[in-house]
Design a protein around this nucleic acid. Sequence first.
DNA 1: AAATAAACGAGACGGTACGTCCCGTCTTAGA
DNA 2: TCTAAGACGGGACGTACCGTCTCGTTTATTT
Lengths: 190, 190, 190, 190
Amino acid sequence: MSEHRRGPARSEVARVAILEATARQFATRGYDHLTMEGIAADAKVGKQTIYRWWSSKGALVADCLIEGLLLPDDLNPPDTGDLRADLTDWLGSILAIAQHPGGEALMRSLISAAAENEDVGRRLHESLGASSSLIVRLQAGVDAGQLPAGAPLTEIGEALVGAVILRAISRVPAEEATTARLVQAVLPAG
Amino acid sequence: MSEHRRGPARSEVARVAILEATARQFATRGYDHLTMEGIAADAKVGKQTIYRWWSSKGALVADCLIEGLLLPDDLNPPDTGDLRADLTDWLGSILAIAQHPGGEALMRSLISAAAENEDVGRRLHESLGASSSLIVRLQAGVDAGQLPAGAPLTEIGEALVGAVILRAISRVPAEEATTARLVQAVLPAG
Amino acid sequence: MSEHRRGPARSEVARVAILEATARQFATRGYDHLTMEGIAADAKVGKQTIYRWWSSKGALVADCLIEGLLLPDDLNPPDTGDLRADLTDWLGSILAIAQHPGGEALMRSLISAAAENEDVGRRLHESLGASSSLIVRLQAGVDAGQLPAGAPLTEIGEALVGAVILRAISRVPAEEATTARLVQAVLPAG
Amino acid sequence: MSEHRRGPARSEVARVAILEATARQFATRGYDHLTMEGIAADAKVGKQTIYRWWSSKGALVADCLIEGLLLPDDLNPPDTGDLRADLTDWLGSILAIAQHPGGEALMRSLISAAAENEDVGRRLHESLGASSSLIVRLQAGVDAGQLPAGAPLTEIGEALVGAVILRAISRVPAEEATTARLVQAVLPAG
DNA sequence: AAATAAACGAGACGGTACGTCCCGTCTTAGA
DNA sequence: TCTAAGACGGGACGTACCGTCTCGTTTATTT
């Protein structure tokens, strides 16, 4: 009753090696300058083995995103009960990541990958976007009465994340006060 | 008293032909898939003439931005006295541009170019960003009492533009109500 | 027990197409004006396939020489028993080849190739030089008593071939009597 | 009554600088790898100044030959009365020049230049060939009874020079006995 | 067990584009 | 009008990768 045609099954070892090599190369070189040959060599894998399972380097990067090989996991905003402070903290930690060398390049590489490749774009949206812990935190703020009931949570989230992205591609260094002012832009009542 | 070192001056004809060819190719093919050879052929120019004056295709695109060959000029928000309505209109017109085929691709190409190339990033920031007509409009809103005096105008602008960028790279289609909700996110008082 | 390292073997079709294209281009354009791109296009082959197996156009031409794609095979001196007449005939036929249009250019191209490239030089030496049929014919002359026993056969051969080469690069047209006088220079006893 | 059209006359300084630069580059790099731009830079001259007076690098090298900038002057065979010994000496000194590093390359470069360029070929022929001191020496040998009266002097000279050229392009190292055997090939009676 | 077939590593293949070098012509300013 | 300087359109260089296509080997599933 097996679905399995005949011959060996897909090699998990190869799959993991390829994704890890992709993440390594992505972090090292950036999205442009990623090469299939470089990934294959790094993963010690034939090129065909990559092309057999992924259609492009975009798909490869998108899979890396899903597996959490590209982004740190702990980007969730804290919940101390003070929405304003929590958002400010959260923005601060993101900008801190973007600040240290490599982090900024990785961020821009991700943006570039997303802009060029549909899969990456959608994955990034899922990771950073709508259903994310940021929305959850904002909803908690609504529940706590720190935001009005009908507040456009999705759009507030987009505005915050979008501002970070804009800073990344503009190479504007984030200053100390920036996070607070950004939070104030979407939570003016304070 | 000429600063001119000796020998023929730079050819203005070639300069313009190259920038126009770049803009043409950029709109046609996008930032990735731009090729120096394609630009040179389109501009009927030797490759060396490009490399003599620009160090990379990023620099080329950045110059096109400066010359206004890539973006329409009329992205300024209107000023009818009603800040909320004006911002909504403005966002709507930007999203309309991004919506029609080609516009979306051009937008993502610009984002990709900015993410990969420092010059393009800075130019884009100057065009879309801080000193722009958007800030001017927001300041007018402050003057009219539609925004509080200490409002973080720069960050509000970044939030709006950033949200648009995020939508572009996420491939989230903008719905009718989106613009209004986005304005509400940064102008909640209404 | 295969020596085969793994992966596809070298394509014989490509190898032959490249050598034939080289010979064609060599005859058409001469050694200078040979271009790798021209050969690749003529052979319908990627440039890298040439560079994978040959290090320079000199090496390519040398291989063509080995395969006999550049020189006619029938440059052997006849053996009628009369050494003097045979050498005169042989020189005459070589100069005839060099005379007709294209032949002269091909000859000079070969000389140029040999002068610039070590491989070609050695190959040419092997083809025209020491171990050749010319020496064999001279040795037969020794056996027949038409040359003294200790005659410096190699040097006699070099003198004859060298004189032909000198004429080729000097563009001195060969006259009727030249061959006879040249033979007389190295076989004076007659 | 002046033939001189108007404006400054041709600059002798530039002419000499160009020829000397050509000779320098020729010795350094060889005929191939000679570049007009390199010569112009070396001579501190505009490229146009070269093209105004010479049609090609071949013509340039030919002029260098005429001016004696490429070959040593003292290639004349000695005349001690002993033709055989004198020729052997002369060949030996030529092969010695060809032997030491640089000399061999220069020789092959000259051959290459002659093969590719008609002017150089003719100049070389005039320098090394027919009317040269070698023929004069051979004629003296005839007068002294060391060669028969009707001996084909031109062809004997060609055979000797040709053999040297053949050795140069074949990369056959000249051994001690070679010169003697070569002389024997054209002066067998001894 | 033997036959079959897919996945694998390796890498050759026809191509496109790269960034550089040099060509021969043309343009400028100065002598 | 010649010169030094050098920009120009163009052609070829040798290299890096692309995505496809063999190879021979390894592994798993039928017969």
